[in-house]
Design a protein around this nucleic acid. Structure first.
Lengths: 360, 360
DNA sequence: CTGTTAGCGCCTTCAG
DNA sequence: CTGAAGGCGCTAACAG
């Protein structure tokens, strides 16, 4: 059968407790003893039984990372950064196993994964990306997070709205153990506002908006920023200038076609993200319109390929890698939570070739 | 403290064994009893203790997916497909927790994750992408895989060379329990050969090659296909026409610059993948060369953005989503392993705008 | 510094 | 169909 701690102990001529101690290194052990134990481990090819140790210690080395779409580089970069940070965590707690869970944006699957992670007694959970705005789901999720953090799991929100971080005080349930929720938010609203402001400064007045999926927090934030910029300059903003769609190229393409159908005089389009923006560009090209001469186009996120598109995309840079790394440190307790449990990360306007002054 | 099985049993007025049975559903239980138990579970918000059950049952519901770079859509699509397939696995074994592990292409981290997964007594492991060709690492990896599958973990290779699948017979160690390794390979060689063949048919003779990272199986396979096509047509193939680089845009850019420096008369370039191809295009543009009029460029993988590039990329389509889904079914035992444990998936040439006949 | 002694929470025979 | 009992492999006090 499989090798157990006892086998190693017997081989090394010590007790199981001693083996456990050298393996976990949280306790003084004589150098000679340690050497013999380590040798026995090698010889027997012993591999710790995770479940058993998790059971006994009432904790595991699993950290869950929930993402909306693992095939989207936005989440890939975020998750990769978290994971890198966790592997480097040879400090307290040792090596953590980062578990990336793909929710597909479905609130149900989000809850399912939360339960699965709680079942594994995960050490921490990082929730990334936008959340559903549906009140029922928001409540269920908040309850789930309270349960989790009550069970001692560290919870970090990354790129999610603040409200959830405050869910626990409102609920009146004070988690006994474990830290309260911590949130890292992106300045989606400010970034969107500056982006649309940039287009306005270039002389654009008829600006189409390909908003993200309806009913999602990120969509709402970016749309609010866009509208704030228009309002600020007293530009009218009829509902027909906004179309919702997913964060993919096809949606961007379709949305652009629809926007042009509604108003063929558009001179600029802001997209939900960079990927959708490329779809918008494709749709424009197919209709014989040039970017940016005829229509300016802007994206959001500044993913790596955006700089390489032709023309290079004007967009809003989000510090994804930094956010992921910080979330990783927070979830392992290697960084103190920011005051109030919330930190907002800046969004930087990146002006490139896809936007230009309006040629009337 | 946390709710346990015993609490639920007490609440429902039955024994712990009965609760366990209704929860696992592998055993006949009276409908009335089941109802009461389920109600008690609801009321107490009971969540199974994964480690405890894994310990007792000597198995867990974790499935690991190893990828080289989670920020690369190539792996995102693959991993997403595996994970989707696993969530749908409400059949035997129930819901599985898919764990995506980012190795960064490092053989050491690959081994580390394998151990971590073995420690968790993972139900299965899917290894994706290219492997290191270093003999020492190959041996260590093969040994690790034998250990894993010997411990009852299902192992599936996806996009990896065959040799590893055969490691276990050679090693002479017959895994007692668990299925032997299964491999899903991409026809990298054939795809590359057809791609270069296509360029040759268009009249190109001086074809630069931006190969992937050195010492990796996928790189070797694609390069072999490229060379086979050249040899087939009696075209000379000096070493200076090949430059190695990573799978990112920057590497593609740099490699293209280097290739042009070595031979400014190149009329075509095949890149390691689509991302690198975009970098190549950028480098060419920066040097005042047009694609495809002056230089044809081709990628590999056919990631979503490739069709949207300007010009759209000629490339080789790999059935990533299908491969991932199939790997998911294989690793859960819901699909029979192919004869010989190996299936090769086709690579399809996609001709688009970035390649054209050579204008001499 | 090291051994001994109890469980951690659940699954799984074995009776009933 | 259900209960009782033992142990999965490890860790965490206690003693020494």
């Amino acid at each position: 059968m499989t090798v157990t701690l006892a086998d190693v102990a017997a081989r090394a001529g010590v007790s199981a407790a001693t083996v456990s101690r050298v393996l976990n290194g949280n306790y003084p052990v004589a150098a000679g003893t340690r050497g013999r134990v380590l040798r026995a481990v090698e010889e027997l090819e012993y591999v710790v039984n995770g479940p058993a140790s998790a059971l006994a210690a009432a904790s595991s080395d699993l950290v869950g990372i929930l993402v909306n779409d693992i095939a989207d580089p936005f989440f890939g970069i975020l998750a990769g950064a978290v994971q890198t940070e966790l592997s480097g965590a040879s400090g307290p707690g040792g090596e953590k196993l980062a578990v990336v869970c793909n929710t597909g944006g479905s609130p149900e699957r989000e809850l399912t994964y939360l339960t699965l992670l709680q079942r594994q007694r995960a050490a921490g959970v990082v929730l990334t990306g936008s959340a559903s705005e549906d009140p029922a789901h928001a409540r269920a999720l908040a309850a789930g997070l309270v349960r989790l953090s009550g069970a001692g799991t560290r919870v970090v929100l990354c790129g999610r709205p603040v409200q959830e971080a405050g869910a626990e005080p409102e609920s009146g349930v004070e988690p006994k153990s474990g830290a309260p929720l911590t949130a890292l938010a992106f300045d989606n609203r400010g970034g969107a506002q500056r982006l649309t402001g940039h287009l306005i400064a270039l002389g654009h007045r008829r600006i189409g908006c390909v908003a993200g999926p309806a009913g999602r927090t990120t969509t709402a934030e970016r749309l609010a920023g866009h509208r704030a910029a228009l309002a600020e300059h007293g530009i009218e903003d009829p509902p027909r200038r906004v179309v919702h769609g997913a964060y993919d190229r096809g949606s961007g393409y379709d949305a652009a076609v629809e926007l042009l159908r509604r108003d063929s005089e558009l001179t600029a389009v802001v997209a939900a993200n960079d990927t959708a923006a490329l779809g918008v560009c494709a749709a424009l090209r197919d209709r014989g319109l040039r970017v940016p001469e005829d229509v300016s186009v802007a994206g959001f996120d500044d993913l790596p390929f955006s700089a390489d598109a032709a023309p290079a995309l004007t967009t809003v840079r989000l510090p994804l890698a930094e956010a992921g790394a910080r979330a990783g440190r927070l979830v392992t307790g290697r960084e103190e939570r920011p005051p109030g449990g919330l930190a907002t990360l800046p969004a930087e306007l990146m002006v490139r070739g896809s936007t230009s002054v309006r040629y009337p």
